[in-house]
């Protein structure tokens, strides 16, 4: 599966469009990580636990999107965008969307 956030795949041509595919996941923070993050919040600096958590979650959203694309017969997803929104206290939704296409 080819993934790209440009309108087409560089070096290839699109031969078929399958419409928009989406994938999302809602994640809450882990207690252990939250304690560490609370401590880090005083000192300042990177919250490594959260960086990992969000990257994992975003990967999950991407995988769901790609599975959807695969199930409808696409071999690439182009013009991918990411958004993050905080849905509840301590929980965030990670959302990925793009256009499923077939390239030669």
């Amino acid at each position: 599966m080819i993934v790209s956030n440009t309108e087409n795949v560089p070096g290839k041509t699109i031969i078929e469009f399958y419409g928009v595919v989406t994938g999302s996941t809602v994640r809450a923070k882990h207690i252990g990580r939250d304690i560490m993050a609370g401590f880090k919040n005083i000192v300042g600096g990177e919250l490594t636990g959260y960086t990992e958590l969000l990257m994992e979650a975003r990967q999950e959203a991407m995988t769901r999107m790609l599975n959807q694309a695969q199930s409808i017969g696409a071999n690439a997803v182009v013009n991918i965008r990411f958004t993050t929104s905080s849905v509840a206290q301590g929980a965030a939704e990670l959302f990925a969307y793009g256009t499923a296409v077939k390239v030669d």
Binding site: I2, V3, S4, N5, V9, P10, G11, A37, K40, N41, I42, V43, G44, G45, E46, L47, T48, Y50, T51, L54, M55, R58, I80
Partner: peptide, 15 residues
């Protein structure tokens, strides 16, 4: 070849 690449960071400000 092409692929999507990402880089991310969560950062906080000190007290």
């Amino acid at each position: 070849a092409t692929d999507l690449v990402t880089g991310s960071v969560v950062i906080s400000v000190d007290y």
